[in-house]
Design a protein around this nucleic acid. Structure first.
Lengths: 207, 207
DNA sequence: AAATGACTGTACCTCGGGTACAGTATCGCG
DNA sequence: CGCGATACTGTACCCGAGGTACAGTCATTT
């Protein structure tokens, strides 16, 4: 039909939404193919099994999230020269984007997979690990830059601090979902921002 | 057999471990009954269906977590009179307990359920919400007590701050699992502690 | 001795994740 | 123009998991 199959992408779109909404195992192939308007054979033409689908969606998801995240912090650097200010601006842009989501955050695919992990193979676990380490590296670089100018007001493990934004996002999503409150996620990001501010702000400066 | 069925409890123990390890849907009734040494009929004698089992496990889990959490902060109050210090001691005790876990945290049942939520009914979602609100109330009370003595060094939403510990724990577990690093969770709790310290410590006091 | 609680055993149904494989429509290419 | 590759459809079948239905059993309690 289509030159380069857009059916594959369509399957992934439908499946990703369904997985984020109700989990991987609760998302049946039958419902995906019904929504995509194809047959079961068509599905298995594109993906060897459900796990292959999960893997393909995860790859795409991680790339997309990376680009979005980079966007906020690049914009932060455009708007502020100081590394601390740039980081704080990036965090605020991120938090605002989270506040602007119409409903509770649909959920993080990594967390969704994480809680079904035995379903999946080494590949997927390794990809998720790489994704997390990638975020760590990104934020660690920013933190290092900040620390060159500002001594921290408390002794903290820099790696853990770099991971904290990831943790806060994952935790914020869980809170958002359990409380059914769309604001929770943004709130948590803003609290992390407040922590960074207090951690690096010159002590004589007022809040 | 047993006067008051301990089979029910045994089923719940086995199922809880399995669910935390690999998710709810990946845990089959067949494997549970095999481990418990009973038949399928025996299982359905105790639980109407798999969801009823999930519910029973969640109730027990929430109560247990509550007791454990209360323990740390009660001990904190025993060890320190000042509300801020008591809170910080409680957090440290909690973090240490997390560091002492032999492997990566098995996972939070709430998050596990959260990411399978459409599988479950209103009841379960309401219970998880109540659990989160319960934690919020608990920590909000502590924060209020602290604020009576210490003005915060940054403007923060107190409710969100009370929720943050829950978020940090959930996020820390996800990080612990994706990175396969048992220390992540404790690290995240310690960072939250550092935040509380910076937020309420008198500005002239050194870190 | 009867009733109750805690099961076992057998049989059967549905749904979801596949597997197997033959057939078909469309396209680009030589 | 025909060939092969790509992108599917259709049919049929298998297995495991979540149940349902219900009769039977065996120990304890009253």
């Amino acid at each position: 039909m289509a030159r380069v199959s857009d059916t594959r992408e369509r399957i992934m779109d439908i499946a990703e939404n369904a997985i984020l909404e109700k989990g991987f195992s609760a998302t049946s192939i039958d419902e995906i193919i019904a929504a995509a308007g194809i047959t079961k054979s068509g599905f298995f033409y594109h993906f060897a099994d459900k796990t292959a689908l999960a893997k393909a969606i995860l790859v795409r998801y991680l790339e997309r999230e990376d680009r979005i995240m980079d966007g906020f912090f690049e914009r932060g650097r455009e708007l502020a020269e100081d590394p601390l200010q740039a980081f704080l601006v990036g965090l605020k842009l991120f938090a605002e984007a989270m506040y602007d989501l119409p409903a509770a955050h649909p959920g993080c695919l990594v967390a969704t997979y994480c809680y079904q992990e035995r379903l999946f193979d080494r590949d997927i676990r390794e990809m998720m690990r790489e994704g997390a380490l990638n975020w760590r590296r990104r934020f660690l670089a920013m933190i290092d830059e900040i620390e060159q100018r500002y001594p921290p007001n408390d002794q903290v493990d820099r790696e853990a601090l770099a991971d904290m934004i990831n943790a806060v996002v994952e935790g914020g999503i869980v809170m958002s979902k359990t409380l059914n409150d769309p604001r929770s996620l943004g709130d948590q990001v803003m609290l992390f921002r407040s922590y960074v501010k207090l951690l690096y702000a010159s002590r004589e400066a007022a809040a």
